[in-house]
Design a protein around this nucleic acid. Structure first.
Lengths: 234, 234
DNA sequence: AGGCTAGTGTCAGCCACTGACAGTTGACAA
DNA sequence: TTGTCAACTGTCAGTGGCTGACACTAGCCT
C-alpha cells in the first residue's frame, strides 16, 4: 500500500485571501507567493537530482533537504515522488488538448490530431520556461523514458489522456463514444505511434524540440500506408 | 527506491539435480517439487487475496502467512508484489509470440497479428488451468485493469512486448527495424487497439474468453476503415 | 551415515508515505 | 498596532515494500 500514486491536490491555490478590488489578476498575497516559490524550488530540485543521479537513487529526503524543508512538507506539495517527475509534462498535455479543441471542424480527426501535436511541440518551447528551463524538461522526459517505474506511470497517464482525446474527437464528429468505436480506435492508433516516436527520440542523440517534431511528422505520415496490404511489392 | 519493480528471477528452476537416465521428462526431485508447490501456493493465495480484498489492501505479509512461510521467502520467489499479479499473464504472452512466429509467411503483418491473438485467446482457455483456475485469471485481469499501479505496470510490459513483436514482424517481412519504421508502426497501432479492447472487456459484464475474443475481432476490423478520411459521409 | 548446499527464518534497516499534534506565521479585523 | 484565526510547517511515530546478513534445517549425493 505504499509507493506508486494516489490522487488529491493539497497544494491547490485555494481562494484568494487578499482584497481583490480591481479586475486585474492582482498579485497574490505573501503567503501564496511563498508557497509558489517553495513548490517551484522543490520541483526544480527534484528534477535536477533525478536527471543527474537518477530517479530511484534520489531520496525524497534529499529533495526536501535541498530546499531546506521537512520531508513532510514535500508530501504536502506533491502527493508522491512520481508526481514531481510529471509536473511539467502535465502542462504540455493540457496545452495539447486545448489546441486540439481549437482545430478547424472540417479537418479529418487524424489530421486534427496531427496538427495539434505539432503545434503543441512548437508552443512548448516557448511557454514552459516560466517554471523550469526547457532543457531541464527535455532531460526529464528522457529520464522518464529510461526509468522503468516512471515509464509505467507515463504510459498510464497517456491512456488517461487518450480517453479525454477520444471524447474530444467524438464531440467534433458528433458521434457517441459508447456506440461508435472509431474515435477510440483512431486515438489508440495515433497514440501508439506517438509513443513510439517519443521513445525513439528519448533514445536518440538529438534532444531538441525540432528533432522530436520531425520524428513525429515522419512517423505519423507512415501510419496510413503501413496498414495497407502489401509491403513487399511496394 | 522502494516499491515498483526490479528484475532478476531467483526462482528459476535451475539445473536438474536428480540422475536423469531415461529421455523422459523425469519427475524432478523432492526439493524441486516442494519449491514448485510453494510457488504455486503463493501465487494462488496472492491472486485470491488481490481479487477479493484488493491489491493495495493486500499485504505481502498476509500472502506469506496464508501459505505459512516467512515474508522473506515470498521475496525469494517473486522479486516483488507486482510480479505475482502478472505471473499468469506472462505465460499467455509467451504463447502469443510463439503463435505469431508460426503464422504462414504469406499473411499480411496485420492479418498475422490478428490471427495470433485470436489463437492465443482460444489456447488460453485450455492451458492455464494447470497453474490457476481460468476464472481466477480472468478476475485477475480485470483487477489489473482497475488498479492504477498495476495498470501502469501492465502497460509497460505491453510495450516491451511490442518491441519483441515488432522484431518478429520485421523478421517475417525481411525488413530492418532500424531503418524501416513500418513494423513498429503497425504493431503500435495494433497494440493500441488491443489495449482498448482489453479495457472495455475488463469494464464490461461478460468476463468469458468468448467475450474478449469477440470484442477483439470486431475492433481490429474497425482499424483500417477508422483511419480513412470521411466518417460522416460513410 | 555424513558432508554439502539450496532453501528458509530471523533480524535489522532503508525508504516511501501518512496521521496526529504542536509550533509559526501570514491575513485580517478591531 | 495588536490580537485572533487559519494556513503552513516541523516533529514523531508507525505501516508496508523490500534487501542484506547470518544462522539453521533439510534434501541430495557419495
Amino acid at each position: 500500500m505504499r509507493t506508486e500514486q494516489r490522487a488529491a491536490d493539497p497544494a491547490k491555490p485555494q481562494a484568494e485571501t487578499s482584497g481583490d478590488i480591481s479586475g486585474e489578476p492582482s498579485r497574490p498575497g505573501l503567503r501564496e507567493r511563498k508557497k509558489q516559490r517553495t513548490r517551484d524550488a522543490l520541483l526544480r530540485a527534484a528534477l535536477e537530482l533525478f536527471t543527474t543521479k537518477g530517479y530511484e537513487e534520489t531520496t525524497v529526503d534529499e529533495i526536501a533537504e535541498a530546499v531546506d524543508v521537512s520531508q513532510r512538507t514535500f508530501f504536502r506539495y506533491f502527493t508522491n515522488k512520481q508526481e514531481t517527475a510529471f509536473a511539467v509534462q502535465e502542462m504540455v498535455e493540457q496545452r495539447f488538448v486545448e489546441t486540439l479543441r481549437e482545430r478547424p471542424a472540417d479537418e479529418t480527426p487524424f489530421v486534427a490530431l496531427r496538427g495539434a501535436v505539432i503545434d503543441a511541440w512548437d508552443a512548448m518551447g516557448r511557454s514552459i520556461e516560466e517554471v523550469v528551463p526547457v532543457e531541464l524538461h527535455m532531460r526529464t522526459y528522457q529520464m522518464i523514458e529510461s526509468t522503468p517505474s516512471l515509464l509505467a506511470a507515463h504510459l498510464r497517464r497517456s491512456i488517461e489522456m487518450e480517453e479525454e482525446i477520444a471524447r474530444v474527437i467524438a464531440e467534433r464528429e458528433g458521434l457517441d463514444l459508447d456506440t461508435d468505436p472509431r474515435p477510440r480506435v483512431v486515438v489508440a492508433a495515433f497514440s501508439g505511434v506517438m509513443r513510439v516516436t517519443g521513445r525513439l527520440w528519448g533514445a536518440g542523440e538529438d534532444s531538441s524540440v525540432e528533432s522530436i517534431r520531425a520524428i513525429t511528422e515522419s512517423y505519423l505520415d507512415h501510419l496510413g500506408p503501413a496498414l495497407a496490404e502489401n509491403w513487399r511489392t511496394e
